[in-house]
Every structure is written in C-alpha cells, then in structure tokens.
C-alpha cells in the first residue's frame, strides 16, 4: 500500500481508513442537446478490502455509469465526471490518461456483460490475455505464455494450450466470459468491477461463472464491485448491497438485512416483484409506473411518482441518506428513526 502511494504523482488528500476504494460526491452529467442530463447524482461509497459489494438497479439507474467513471472510461467530450474517486488514497479522477492506463488492468480491472463485444475478434485468445500482462509487467515472452496458460487453467478452461491459439468466435458464451475473467485477473488486480457478468449467459452457465467468481474471491481475496439487476445473483455472491435509483444510492445494507428488512419502498418493491422459485405467489406485486427519463424529475424524491407511501414533503425535497441501525436509506419515512 505504501509503495503504491509513493509512486503516485496525482496523489491528493488521502483517505486514512482501510478503504480500498472511496468514492465521494460523484456526479456524472452528459450533454444532451443543449442541456446537461445528470446520470449519477452525488454518489458516495466505500469498498473495504476483500469484500464483494453489489450495485443494484434497473436500466438507466446509473450503475454502469458509476463503474465506468471509476475506470476513467467516460469520454471527456461526452460526459462530465465530478467528485473524488480514490483508490488506496490515490485520486483517480482527473489523472492523466497515461497514468490511468497503468492502473487499469493492473489495480482495477473490469468484466463486461457481453464477452463477444469486449473481446477483439481478430486476435487470438492467448495474445489478448498476454497483452495485459505485457503492458503491466516486464517479463519475457515465454513467461507471459506460461502465465496466460496458468490463468486459463484457473478459470477452468479445458485444453488451455490449444485455446490460446484460438479466436473468440470459436468459443461458447460461457467460455468467452471465462476468458474475460482470466484477462481481468491476469495481473491480480485489487479491485474487480463486474458489470452484469452473467446476464448474457444461460442459467446453468451462470451457475458455473458465479461458482468460479466465488472461488477466485476466496483464493485472491479480490475486492469485487458487482453491477447487476438480478437480485438472485446478489443474494448468491454479495456481502453488501447498494441500491441505485435515478442516479442516486437509495439504500445500502449488508445482504442479509437488505433482503430481510428492506427499508426503501423501491427496494421492497423490487424484492416483491420478482417471482421466487422457493415460494408461490398467485399474483406478483409490481411497482407501478415506469422509471422516469433522466432529467424528467428535478425536485423532490425521484421515486415519489411510483411510491405508495409518498407524502407532501416527497414532492418538495429530495431526502438525504438517513443512517439507521444496520443500513442507510434515502427516504423521508425514516427521518425520525435515525441513530447517532
């Protein structure tokens, strides 16, 4: 940790705690016609070393934009990223592109939803994984090949010595996702961001990949930020959960508390609206209405239009995060239940 801080140039005030990643007041805006649309609105959170945190939300909630900002992958001409993102005390936001490249792939890496579009179709598997190692570590060619094969073995790819000479289209979806994971883990990153890693996969293959991620987590104690809309996957793999709605974190809790006593009406609505294999409901209990478009709601709580508990104050003032005993929640219903 100390060595990393020494070599950083863009270092600013460092976070003293044991947090691996600390995001404070993250705002992301995009240009749309002549206005700016807020995609992520004042998001703050910390990731501790070794934990798996799920960022849950529906399409357009800003979960992927949050992860792309951490990676520094929001194009400058399109989006405005504001706020502080610190990895082990090193400020990432505003870092020159060249330095960011030394962090991406080595300190933080990312797995995307669609492995077919995120692998290069004209390069061999082995070359693509090898490139990650070559970029970050100064080792010989034979060593790189050896490491590549090792990584493929670790993610459970059969006949890795043959696979390194194959192209992405020759592999199935599950295999491609394994290759993506091998590539992301090749330099043993401190933080792995997995953006909907199993959404494009069939359930039996999803089970394999979740199993693999759980194994790798134990083996390397990698911190994982899991972006997903699937509460089943969350329950399976996460230690802690953050729920996003309309660009904001509306609830945060450990996984047991969140599923047992969700406090935000949106979280409760999400949990109630999914059919569950273990219990039988004759009718689902959906959240009414639709997710509002970005920029549509400017005052008050953005969820109020779909909320059964909306009060007068909800249409006037957006609630802050209230800290309860085991969770934080952004809802006026819990205003008077705050602790500390």
């Amino acid at each position: 940790m100390a060595s990393l801080q020494e070599k950083t140039i863009g270092k600013q005030d460092s976070d003293v705690s044991e947090n691996l990643l600390s995001v404070k007041g993250l705002n992301v805006k995009f240009k749309s016609d002549n206005t700016k649309v807020t995609a992520v609105n004042n998001v703050s959170f910390q990731l501790k070393e070794g934990e798996t945190v799920a960022l849950v939300g529906e399409s357009g909630s800003g979960k992927s934009v949050t992860s792309l900002s951490i990676m520094g992958l929001i194009p400058k001409h399109a989006g405005f990223v504001d706020g502080s993102i610190q990895l082990l005390g090193q400020q990432l936001n505003g870092l020159p592109a060249k330095q960011m490249r030394t962090i991406r792939g080595r300190e933080i890496s990312m797995i995307f939803q669609e492995p077919m579009t995120s692998l290069n179709p004209v390069h061999k598997i082995g070359d693509q994984i090898g490139k990650v190692i070559r970029l970050h570590e100064n080792i010989k060619k034979e060593e790189i090949t050896k490491r590549t094969i090792e990584m493929l073995v670790k993610v459970g790819i059969p006949r890795p010595d043959k696979i390194i000479k194959e192209y992405p289209h020759q592999l199935s979806g599950g295999m491609r996702q394994r290759v993506m994971i091998a590539m992301a883990m090749a330099c043993n990153p401190k933080l792995l961001i997995a953006d909907e890693p199993t959404t494009a996969l069939d359930v039996t293959i999803q089970a394999q990949i979740l199993d693999l991620m759980n194994d790798l987590k134990k083996q390397y104690s990698t911190t994982i930020l899991l972006i997903t809309h699937d509460l089943g996957v969350v329950a399976e793999i996460a230690d802690r959960v953050m729920v996003m709605y309309y660009g904001q974190i509306v609830e945060e809790a450990d996984v047991y508390t969140l599923f047992k006593s969700p406090k935000h009406p949106y979280t409760a609505g999400l949990i109630n609206s999914i059919p569950n294999l273990e219990e039988m409901k004759s009718r689902l209990d959906p959240i009414t209405g639709n997710v509002p478009n970005m920029g549509e709601i400017t005052v008050g709580c953005p969820f109020r239009t779909r909320c059964n508990h909306a009060k007068d104050i909800c249409s006037v003032k957006n609630p802050p995060l209230f800290k309860l005993e085991n969770q934080t929640v952004r809802c006026w219903l819990h205003e008077n239940k705050e602790v500390g």
Binding site: D202, T204, Q206, A207, D211, G232, A235, E236, Y256, N276
Partner: peptide
C-alpha cells in the same frame, strides 16, 4: 434437476446445494 438448482434464489439465507453442470450446451 440441474436447471432448478442453478437458478439463484433472491434470499441470502437459503444456501441450496448446486448441481453444477460441466461443459456447454
């Protein structure tokens, strides 16, 4: 049986025994 066991249950207290199928379709 494998298909049923592979579906993740949205309840962290339930840890079911997984039948992990090897290989792809």
């Amino acid at each position: 049986q494998a298909l049923m066991s592979a579906v993740p249950v949205p309840d962290p207290t339930i840890k079911k025994e997984r039948i992990i199928l090897t290989g792809d379709v």
